[in-house]
Simulated assay, not measured.
Amino acid sequence: MVLKRRTFLVASSMTLGLAGCTGDNETTPDEDEETTSPDGADDEGTEMDVTVQVRSNSEYGDILVGPDEMTLYMFDQDTQGNGVSACYDGCADNWPPHTVDDEPVAGEGVTADLRTFERETGERQVMAGGWPLYYFAPDEEPDDATGQGVNDVWWVLTPDGTPVKPDGGY
């Protein structure tokens, strides 16, 4: 049986990433969460680089993606709205957090409230609708969403920040 490269990469990364994705990390929420205006402008109304945008995916419809149009995911081990990530170490190697240096900026069509919180590493991770956002390392192209449903805990999100799950979401 010949495996496709993508199938092999997904299977390999899922196996390697499982140990780091159990959600055993304990941290406390950061009380100084930051927000941005939904139109993608700063206080002076100047256009800034978009942090989160909407892209139509061939399988899941309109979903949230990063500035490079790569798919973003949420993790069931995170608690919505508490500004803490449960994904570090090996987990974060396979599911890199979506981080920013400045305020997060919503692109056209993003209706989820965007905020940030400080990770244990000092980076500022972006949240959409209260969910910390992550990439999936094996995704190679903008339309890839190979992390969808991995271990029944990783999900793409709709423009309002709702996870896309087989049972219709949260």
Rank of each mutant, 00 (worst) to 15 (best):
D152L: 08
R124T: 03
V150H: 07
T121N: 14
L133N: 04
E141Y: 09
T121I: 04
V153G: 09
Y134K: 06
Q125L: 10
E140R: 12
R124Y: 09
T146E: 11
P132N: 00
V126C: 12
A137P: 00
Y134H: 07
E120S: 14
V150D: 13
Q125M: 13
D144T: 01
E140S: 07
G149L: 05
G122T: 12
W131M: 11
G147D: 07
E140P: 00
F136D: 01
T146R: 11
M127S: 15
P132C: 03
T146C: 10
Y134C: 07
A137I: 06
P132Q: 02
E123F: 14
N151H: 11
Y134W: 08
E120D: 15
E140I: 06
V126I: 09
G147M: 08
D152N: 11
D152W: 02
G149Q: 04
Y134M: 11
P138S: 10
G149M: 04
N151S: 15
P142R: 08
W131V: 08
D143F: 01
Q148S: 00
P142N: 11
A137S: 06
L133G: 01
G122E: 13
Q148F: 00
P132D: 00
L133C: 00
R124V: 02
L133K: 04
P138F: 08
P138R: 11
Y134N: 05
Y134E: 03
D144P: 00
W154M: 10
Q148Y: 00
E141A: 12
P142F: 01
D139Y: 05
Y134P: 05
Y134R: 09
Q148H: 06
P132S: 01
D152T: 02
P132A: 03
E120R: 08
G149H: 08
A128R: 12
A137N: 03
M127P: 02
T121V: 10
T146Q: 10
G149K: 04
F136N: 02
E141V: 07
P132T: 01
L133F: 04
E140C: 09
T146F: 14
G122P: 13
P142G: 03
R124P: 01
D139L: 01
G129Q: 06
V150S: 10
G147S: 09
L133I: 00
Y134F: 15
P138W: 12
G129W: 04
E141N: 11
V126D: 10
V153F: 14
V126G: 04
G130P: 06
P138Q: 09
V150E: 08
D144E: 00
T121K: 06
L133Q: 05
D143I: 03
Y135P: 01
L133W: 03
A137E: 13
N151L: 15
G129A: 09
W154P: 01
P142D: 04
P142V: 02
G129L: 09
M127K: 13
T121G: 07
T121F: 08
T121Y: 09
Y135Q: 04
V126Y: 03
D139A: 02
E140A: 14
V150G: 11
V126N: 05
E141H: 06
